[in-house]
Design a protein around this nucleic acid. Sequence first.
DNA 1: ACGTGGACCCGTCAACTATC
DNA 2: GATAGTTGACGGGTCCACGT
Length: 125
Amino acid sequence: MQKPIMAVTGDETDEEIELAPSHMAAATGDMPTYQIPAPTTGLPQGVVMAASPGSLHSPQQLAEEATRKRELRLMKNREAAKECRRRKKEYVKCLESRVAVLEVQNKKLIEELETLRDICSPKAD
DNA sequence: ACGTGGACCCGTCAACTATC
DNA sequence: GATAGTTGACGGGTCCACGT
């Protein structure tokens, strides 16, 4: 389930940020999602496909199936959490580098402003 | 050597959204 | 509605620097 990719808006900068957080229209909506083309893997090692549910009969078989489903879900969520954290870390790193770039840019603009001010202002005496 | 606080990582749960 | 994917929150473990 891929969400639409949005670029970090870097209006006046030459910096291109590839990370693309997108905001969900969720009620909470406090965290962006970190859209990075994720390496798609198949089932993790050790995952065994179950017999079809129709072939289960006894309570024990049902219990085993439930356990298996739970373990599969936990394993998938484990991997999902890792990937989610990896994306978030990368996103934060990108934001930090962007901050650094903008700070340098801001400093330059302030200096330029001071220079122009000196040129344009009439001499005191 | 030992206790402690902070940073980091991991696994799990719960709530949410998207898709079928 | 069922299912799957995403992510914040929480608790636990480990490592490291620091003070005692």
